[in-house]
């Protein structure tokens, strides 16, 4: 397993992948942080589109530091999903899987080692994304007159670590689903396309038009709830339990398929 982990780590150091992974992983949290702070108002005001501007009072809470990051943690998850799907499917489409399985024929160890390397990569992406967003928040907030004293309180720090943990956990489960699609479909484009189509428009259509209580059962909705530490659709623990069941079943099915299928 260590062999698979460490060999995958070489591939993850490709310049294009680093640029893409960190670029996409950082883009959404950074934009969200800038947007949240710059558009914050002292009193509640209607947003020109939908919803209302976030107020200074909300941002000055201990969890105000990671407000922007939490809002886009599902997007970090989608970045993770694309990364995992591409990493697994490309081995098939590029024809490199056969070379790898000749050197590591113990397929379960190979799959787990590769997965763990990607998990470590996405953990680094999440930590860097949150770190940059936090730094940016501390730089921008004083300029807007937003007090940051509660952010560095013990509650604020706990909230920040919780945000990192929830975003990371959601990203890993997104990644697991991406990896499963990559192994199943063996095409990076198809895997990513189907995954994004399911998580964004298809689940929205199902919940909006067919099955209103689907938010408690559909994986994309549950992942969004998990990434936010619970939301209006599902509590954190319900989302965690359901996703543990889905992820466990997916992992067992993919391990069985990969072990038996011709390479």
């Amino acid at each position: 397993m260590w062999g698979a982990f460490s060999s995958e780590w070489i591939k993850l150091q490709r310049r294009s992948l680093l640029l893409w992974g960190f670029g996409a992983g950082l883009l959404f949290p950074v934009l969200a942080t800038i947007f949240t702070i710059e558009r914050a108002t002292r009193t509640p005001q209607l947003f020109s589109g939908h919803g209302i501007h976030i107020t200074y009072a909300v941002l000055e809470q201990p969890n105000g530091l990671v407000h922007g990051v939490v809002d886009v943690s599902s997007l970090i998850g989608i970045v993770s999903l694309c990364l995992f799907a591409a990493a697994f499917a490309t081995e098939y489409s590029q024809g490199t899987l056969r070379n790898l399985l000749v050197r590591e024929p113990r397929r379960i160890q190979f799959l787990i080692g590769k997965f763990l390397a990607l998990v470590l990569f996405i953990l680094i992406v999440v930590i860097v994304a949150v770190g940059v967003s936090v730094a940016l928040a501390f730089i921008l907030a004083p300029g807007k007159g937003i007090s940051t004293s509660a952010w560095s309180s013990s509650t604020g720090i706990t909230d920040m670590f919780q945000a990192v943990f929830h975003a990371f956990l959601a990203a890993v489960i997104y990644g697991l689903f991406g990896a499963a699609l990559g192994v199943l479909l063996r095409s990076p484009g198809l895997s990513i396309g189907i995954a994004i189509a399911w998580v964004i428009p298809i689940e929205a259509i199902i919940v909006g038009a067919i099955w209103s209580s689907g938010s408690n059962w559909l994986p994309g909705r549950l992942l969004a709830a998990l990434a936010h530490g619970g939301n209006g659709d599902s509590t954190y623990y319900h989302a965690l339990l359901m996703l543990a069941i889905y992820a466990g079943a997916t992992a067992v099915a993919i391990l069985a398929l990969f072990r038996r299928r011709d390479a």
């Binding site: 698979a4 070489i10 310049r15 490199t96 070379n99 790898l100 000749v102 590591e104």
Partner: peptide, 25 residues
């Protein structure tokens, strides 16, 4: 096996390193 398949963005040496690490060679 069949046509040689490698990671195009990695050097020849790094490609061999991928296999060396994987097989613990």
């Amino acid at each position: 096996i069949e046509s040689p398949s490698f990671y195009p963005a990695l050097s020849g040496r790094r490609n061999l390193e991928v296999l060396t690490r994987l097989g613990r060679l």
